[in-house]
């Protein structure tokens, strides 16, 4: 309990640090946002008025605290390009990205965990070697290229989905989920290949340990030894790697949303970066940072509970 409290405290401090960094990063940008917003109509009077409205005349420290308090309350400021609150722009988009990352992560688990164990069981056999080579190749294909291949093969040739025709959840939930299957799989495939490789080598390494021989000598069957003894030890490094994978999946969904034209947070982020709509960029970066740091801390804490050797120290 004390450990968790300590972790939560460090977590909050880290978030605060990140918020300072994000705020500072967007302060050093050359150029005045007001001239960009007003465009050709910028007169000194109008610029001064807008600066006053946006609160740009206040000292940076004050603006930081105002921004932070607003962020915690859910007030993310106003978009430069659309002139509407950022929260309105974001509504629904976070859920889409979260759904995409979620399905993708579940796919990684479903594909890689059984395959990793089976490959370890038949390690060094010919099928194992063939699959390992395939694995290495899949690992090297970027998710966005897999996405394009899927669009061509499943979208244009087999017509399993209409490329670019995203269906919102409110309209038809089943079509919404089925549209997300292919983008999610595109992200999941290379990641699964990495997890399979790690789990396989981790299990093969554990299989030469003394306790495995002892387990066999007590009359356990091969699968029993693998699932009850080897797996429990071999999974520990894999769990850390899964946390890294989840973070990568969240980042990867930014790219995949672009391939499949999914109107999620990543697409908005890119559009805002290209349009230099900084309040939106700032908010999305902050949200993704919170997600990334949370995943890392959850992995750290869960670690302690999965490995008794750490728990009982």
């Amino acid at each position: 309990m004390k450990y968790i409290l300590k972790k939560v405290a460090i977590f909050l401090i880290t978030l605060l640090g990140i918020s300072v960094l994000v705020f500072l990063a967007f302060q050093i940008i050359p150029g005045d946002p007001t001239t960009r917003m007003l465009g050709t109509q910028a007169t000194p009077e109008k610029v001064a008025l807008l600066r006053e409205q946006l609160g740009l005349n206040e000292p940076a420290v004050l603006r930081y605290f105002k921004w932070l308090v607003g962020f915690v309350k859910g007030d993310y400021g106003t978009s430069y390009s659309y002139n509407i609150p950022v929260s309105e722009l974001l509504s629904g988009k976070i859920a889409i990205t979260a759904a995409l990352s979620g399905i993708s992560f579940i796919m990684v688990l479903v594909i890689s965990l059984p395959l990793g164990v089976i490959l370890a069981r038949f390690a060094h056999s010919i099928p194992d070697r063939i699959i390992s080579v395939l694995n290495q190749i899949i690992m090297s294909i970027p998710a966005f290229f897999i996405g394009i291949i899927f669009t061509y093969v499943f979208g244009l040739i087999f017509k399993l989905f209409t490329p670019g025709d995203f269906i919102p959840y409110a309209e038809d939930p089943s079509k919404f989920w089925s549209f997300l299957v292919f983008p999610a799989l595109a992200i999941a495939l290379p990641k699964s290949a990495m997890v399979i490789k790690l789990l396989r080598s981790s299990m093969v390494k554990e299989m030469s340990e003394d306790y495995v021989r002892t387990a066999y000598s007590r009359g356990n069957s091969r699968w029993q030894v693998l699932s009850r003894h080897v797996m429990r030890n071999a999974i520990i490094p894999v769990i850390t790697f899964l946390a890294v994978t989840l973070v990568d999946i969240i980042a990867g969904s930014i790219i995949i949303e672009q391939v499949f034209a999914i109107p999620g947070m990543g697409r908005l982020l890119l559009a805002s970066i290209i349009g230099r709509d900084l309040p939106v960029v700032q908010t999305i970066i902050m949200i993704i940072s919170i997600a990334v740091i949370s995943v890392n801390y959850i992995a750290d804490i869960s670690y302690k509970y999965i490995d008794p050797r750490i728990r009982f120290r």
């Binding site: 880290t14 990063a25 969240i250 930014i254 805002s272 960029v281 940072s289 740091i293």
Partner: peptide, 18 residues
């Protein structure tokens, strides 16, 4: 540790946006 916790593509996007 702090920098490597973030996916590099995300950091690159932040910098490029600036």
């Amino acid at each position: 540790d702090a920098v490597t916790a973030f996916p590099s593509i995300l950091l690159a996007l932040v910098v490029v946006s600036i």
